[in-house]
């Protein structure tokens, strides 16, 4: 079965591409990105600010299971309804700096649409750190599999 969400991250590059096709008209897909109440539901975050306009900004806040709050924010550089959002993204109190995101919304048919997110990091090393950051568990899983294979060889 083909994966619905794809991530292309070539070795040694400072960017990556996320693509996904939806069983939704492009208008509804876009709305999911612009209405605070809906963003909160699918991103699992609190929306403190969301200004959907050129030169606007946004601010999100998530609370982890321990009750710690984590802030995220960015500036909206360009905003074209049902077509594109160009924005920055930064994790507050983290050493990763800012990343640039190009979101493109595309109508495929009346009832289907495609989202392409091109994310650009300051360096290839930063990209790889970010990719690994919240996913320690996944990496551990890969390591455990590797360990299993090694154990069998013993």
């Amino acid at each position: 079965m083909e994966l619905k969400t794809k991530v292309a991250a070539e070795d040694g590059r400072q960017d990556l591409l996320i693509t996904r096709e939806f069983d939704l008209p492009v208008g509804l897909l876009f709305k999911a990105y612009t209405e605070a109440g809906i963003v909160e539901q699918w991103m699992g975050t609190k929306v403190l600010k969301l200004e959907n306009k050129k030169h606007g900004g946004y601010q999100f806040e998530t609370t982890d299971p321990k009750g710690n709050k984590h802030g995220f924010n960015g500036a909206i550089h360009d905003f074209v309804p049902n077509q594109k959002i160009t924005r920055t993204f930064e994790m507050e109190n983290a050493p990763f700096g800012v990343q640039l995101e190009f979101l493109e919304f595309e109508r495929l048919t009346d009832g289907t649409s495609k989202l392409t997110i091109h994310v650009v990091y300051r360096s290839a090393a930063l990209r790889d750190q970010m990719l690994q950051l919240p996913f320690k568990q996944g990496i551990n899983m890969a390591h455990n599999r590797l360990q299993e294979i090694v154990n069998k060889l013993k």
């Binding site: 991530v7 991250a9 539901q41 699918w42 568990q137």
Partner: peptide, 22 residues
């Protein structure tokens, strides 16, 4: 596989988005 957990996270989010919007 090290990008797979990242992909999985976005897949989960987008699945949620899709069902909410439906």
């Amino acid at each position: 596989d090290f990008i797979e957990p990242f992909r999985q996270m976005w897949d989960d989010r987008f699945n949620k988005l899709e069902s909410i919007m439906k």
